[in-house]
Write a protein that binds this DNA or RNA. Structure first.
Lengths: 139, 139
DNA sequence: TTGCATGCAAATTTTTTGCAGCCAG
DNA sequence: CTGGCTGCAAAAAATTTGCATGCAA
């Protein structure tokens, strides 16, 4: 996704297209994997001089706008990635926290059934399948 | 699960059966849903005078021992519950954080396929399906 | 007796907030 | 111009750690 497309995403969400917001979003998009706030801070605060509060606030507004997906992976801090609208299927190492994405296996039917069974929810936004284990390298 | 069974769990994991460890585990078991550290602290520190460090250390050791399952639900803090060995399927409200468990729909086949596709993992420990939305009450 | 477990206090890590000034629309 | 955005600093929330003492096995 290029700068122009990212700008449009922000714009269409009704948010202001500021330099910093665009930089935060670009950095997440460029990562092509769930990136931690710490990693973003390394990239943006140090190299582009963006305050950490601004990073957090932008991650939050972009998340609320449905542009970013947030996921906590049982390691005490959150990860952000572009919201594709599709489910994410990932395997996470409990030791080194490496994340492997798995494509090509759908769980949509099962999810649909679950939502139909639900008493408290009528429709849902998204879902993720998180598989936990210990990776070959750590073993 | 009664006290005796919980004791056995701890024992078989090779951990010492201390009064506090048993109380922490009992409180989680009694909750019958993923409980936050904050809720546990309310129960245990105030009523039974257990230090928060002890609560955290016990949650951690019980988790490492495979007795407790930890899950972060994108709200910035973790939840603990008894590890059943079975996958958890839950729908979480992005606003009020209410959790609804869904039983009776299996995703095991899909998970198996995913692990087979994986390059970095040979076998895995557990998995969870988390569906996010906004519940009827919040809507 | 021996080493894991605990309390206490302090430190770390992660995230949020108040407020004055700045800038996109 | 005006309200959202930002930096700065401080606070709050979540979790971890050091060390002396306690207690399970």
């Amino acid at each position: 996704m290029n700068k122009e497309e990212l700008k449009n995403l922000i714009n269409e969400a009704g948010l202001r297209v500021t330099l910093h917001r665009l930089r935060v979003l670009s950095a997440v998009a460029k990562a092509k994997k769930p990136i931690t706030v710490y990693e973003l801070t390394e990239l943006l605060r140090k190299k582009e001089n963006i305050d950490q509060a601004t990073i957090y606030r932008n991650l939050s507004s972009l998340h609320l706008a449905g542009i970013l997906r947030r996921s906590d992976l049982n390691h005490g801090h959150s990860h952000y990635e572009l919201e594709t609208g599709k489910a994410t299927h990932q395997i996470i190492c409990n030791k080194c926290e490496i994340i492997e994405r798995i494509e090509g296996v759908s769980t949509d039917n099962a999810i649909l059934k679950m939502v139909q069974k639900s008493k408290k929810f009528k429709n849902v936004i998204t879902h993720s399948v998180e598989i936990f284990g210990v990776c070959k390298s750590c073993n």
